[in-house]
Design a binder for these strands. Structure first.
Lengths: 134, 134
DNA sequence: ATGCACCCTGTAGTCCCTACAGGGTCAAGG
DNA sequence: CCTTGACCCTGTAGGGACTACAGGGTGCAT
């Protein structure tokens, strides 16, 4: 039930160097080592690393990822703190969803108009333009 | 109807240095200069820069942003190319929306359980964990 | 005419990886 | 057994995307 750093990387789409980097900066715990000094990961690290990678892909900084992980790590924290942190992130998540939905609409429109043979009415910039409350 | 780099930055939430950086790497066109050698931006750049910033915030690389902008810039491109590019990006956008919706669900659950006084059932990592088709 | 806020061009630093270099581990095949 | 190849180790250096000065010019308002 344990795996090497290469297996962990493959399972999460992460380069081996990146896994070691996350360990160095304290985002992943240092795993136990084998007799040959190889890192030996348990299944729990797979979930944690997967979360980190996807949150990064969604545009969250490592500091934000750290904060999100702390929601899961720090069971000891008082509820008011957890609640405020979660609310902040929820607002940001909802803003991102709205932006992505606008982008999706414009991409779909481009695909549709291409099917119709015209490229004229491309409003993709307007999808994420300044014309809404930032 | 023109603005300084500082006004453009303020309107789009971009640091002045970042605007100049985008110009240097060719993401923004070099604007005309005033007599005093100040950059003088037209309204169109506001939309373009706003698009860049929001796409970056959604986790797209500058190369991807360049590709998205080309959908709007290159009216000359043939439809098949534009269509393929748009379809690729649409798929990625939809994946991101799904991930963000999963994250939203878990954040909402945390907030709800905090209201109820418990922090015990935090599944935030599972929201973006490996348990789905990547 | 003199601040003061803003602009200019550099260059160097930060954050987040990513790619070697130089070397050790280990299971498989000869 | 011993070698070979795929993997692992610890560095350190490079790249992408900003960000922060330093040193200097512009322009309006007092």
């Amino acid at each position: 039930m344990t795996m090497t750093i290469g297996e962990l990387g493959k399972a999460t789409g992460t380069k081996v160097e990146t896994v070691r980097y996350y360990e160095r900066i304290g985002l992943l715990p240092a795993p136990p080592r084998t007799g040959g000094n190889y890192r030996s990961y348990a299944a729990a690290e797979l979930g944690r690393l997967s979360f980190i990678r996807r949150a990064r892909d969604l545009g969250f900084s490592l500091d934000q990822v750290r904060a999100l992980l702390s929601l899961s790590d720090d069971r000891a924290r008082d509820c008011a703190t957890v609640d405020a942190l979660a609310r902040d992130h929820l607002a940001e998540v909802e803003r991102k969803i709205a932006d992505l939905q606008a982008l999706r609409r414009e991409l779909a429109a481009i695909i549709a108009s291409c099917g119709g043979g015209t490229v004229a009415d491309c409003r993709i910039i307007e999808a994420l333009g300044p014309g809404r409350v930032a």
